[in-house]
Design a protein around this nucleic acid. Structure first.
Lengths: 332, 332
DNA sequence: TTGAAAGCGCTAACAC
DNA sequence: GTGTTAGCGCTTTCAA
């Protein structure tokens, strides 16, 4: 900046004014400065600026996801970026990999970079460790799961209601022997989905004890094996609800291997690419990651802009998408 | 930092030493400083540090992708992150959406944030506009496509060789009436794939004029319609090569609608989730985004660490994955 | 309309 | 081992 000022023959403050589009500079000087900055290929240093600027914004935020490569996460990422880029805000994205230690380390890394806010998918048992920053007025929005041990904004899917809708759908098609295949109940969303599913069955007079419940399924292979085992039992279920994508894939594999895809009904939680191209198409409870991302971005911006209302949880409704697998009749 | 120094009763420089794990501080003072910093919930300001530090690294890099939500891109993103996070480097990710204007704007945004380097998927006609920064020694690695108008490192898939392998595979299964379905030839990778495919056919004595070539297919729907048209022609192809995921999906849809999935052979460029669950499984030329990402990260780190060898293009080989659709015999 | 001086939080260089 | 001073590139404040 000094160089630009020297070349243009003006004071350093005038260059600052021009680069920041501040008023109070004659058009002639403006042009001179602009030309000098072009010639020297000058770029304002945002970090140096925010060091001195009142308010001290860096125009960057931190985003913590299970994995940036996870399709659900990356759609949220995209929606956030679209909303924030209009304000010139850049996004640091990082992956957690179910590792609570990483959660804390990455939050610290974001803090060290003085982000203006954070969007987090919590995995540690408690998020109380960020209380000092949060109360120090660093905007934070939690997504997918509500935080524990701290009051903050959250944007989540209606997990229990969505799972209940899956249950009602299967009941409506005449099923009474059902199975629930789920992720580990350590995860709040998995617990909610199980609860919603089983409660809906209970209301229909189907005792929980007659439902095959398999949990702790974290990948395709464990889900596939669990499905094979349950389907080989004495009284196999006529319909399956899978609470998560990888679990759905595992169940699909097992059904295909047993040539049972058209005999056993299946509803999966979470939509996925090509679900309609399967045979039969896979009926799902779809989440709306783009809406979650957009809403989280809007809440974060509101907080950055000074909104100090009480923290709230925003619920994004899920949606039943009928494609065939969930409408198969009971086979016994 | 001043506050911490005051509370611990030491000089400011001593706090700096402790926070940066520099030697030359007695264990006793160290503990006192550490405790004071905990008490005040102090976090080192990286931006302020790099302002003064020689070398002036910000430990952040910029990543420009077609879209962070694109599965191929987000796997590259993930591999980059894994390699870079070991060095404490954070990643700014941004989406281009095929918009050359965005490319320049986002590069400018990264420069203003003084990233230590950039990984870019080029889409503008030329990348000459970054020559000043590149020669000013800002490390840059291009991925997926080679840059135009500037000499810089690049990491790409062996597009032509992969497409040639697809051609050879179909020829080996007896096909002589083939079709090429591709993205717009504006894109370097699309051109390369077409070239590799047609050249291989030419070497086998199949004149290009007998190959149905459909290009400019940018989405599932246009590919589906193109496939339906070609398959309804007088002498329909017995085998199809699709040069990109969305095109593959469109062709798959058309084949399903015409009940021709088991009659017309198909090889797609680029792998995708559930390809093996289709009926038949879809044979593909798989790219290795995780290897592209890792290699790009390694090259970028080498450049950041001062490697000033001549720029090079690194080619990551693709791989034929046999799943059924590419091994169907000719149907005439 | 313009510019000089101070200082944001930190580290380099050097003194003690 | 420890502290002091200067200054990174910028914006704020205030004077001209």
């Amino acid at each position: 900046m000094r160089h630009v000022a020297a070349l243009a023959g003006v004071g350093i403050k005038t260059v600052s004014r021009v680069m920041n589009d501040e008023p109070g500079v004659s058009e002639a000087t403006r042009q001179r400065v602009l030309q000098a900055s072009q010639q020297l290929n000058y770029q304002l240093d945002m970090a140096a600026g925010s060091l001195r600027r009142s308010g001290r914004q860096t125009l960057s935020i931190g985003l913590l996801l299970p994995s940036v490569a996870n399709p659900f996460s990356s759609e949220i990422h995209r929606a956030l970026e679209d909303t924030l880029s209009e304000r010139g805000i850049a996004v640091f994205a990082a992956s957690l990999d179910d590792n609570p230690e990483r959660e804390k380390a990455l939050v610290a890394a974001f803090l060290g970079r003085r982000v203006d806010g954070m969007v987090l998918t919590p995995i540690a048992r408690s998020q109380a460790y960020v209380i000092p920053e949060h109360s120090r007025d660093l905007p934070m929005v939690f997504i997918d799961r509500e935080p524990v041990g701290i009051e903050a904004d959250a944007v989540v899917t209606d997990n229990a209601a969505g799972a209940a809708r899956a249950a009602a759908h299967l009941l409506g098609h005449g099923h009474t022997r059902l199975a629930y295949f789920g992720d580990t109940p350590d995860i709040q969303t998995a617990r909610e989905r199980r609860r919603g599913f089983l409660e809906q069955l209970g209301q229909a007079g189907i005792p929980t004890s007659t439902v095959s419940v398999r949990e702790g399924l974290r990948d395709v292979e464990s889900a596939r094996l669990a499905a094979r085992a349950v389907l080989a039992s004495d009284e196999p279920p006529t319909a399956i609800f899978s609470s998560q994508n990888l679990v759905t894939f595992g169940v699909m594999r097992a059904l295909k291997e047993l040539d049972a895809s058209r005999r056993v009904a299946l509803v999966g939680f979470d939509d996925f690419a090509l679900a309609d191209m399967m045979d039969p198409g896979i009926t799902v409870i779809a989440q709306h990651p783009e809406r979650i991302g957009r809403l989280a971005a809007e809440r974060l911006l509101a907080r950055i802009d000074g909104d100090d209302g009480a923290p709230r949880t925003y619920v994004v409704p899920s949606e039943l998408i009928v494609r065939g697998s969930g409408e198969l009749p009971p086979s016994y």
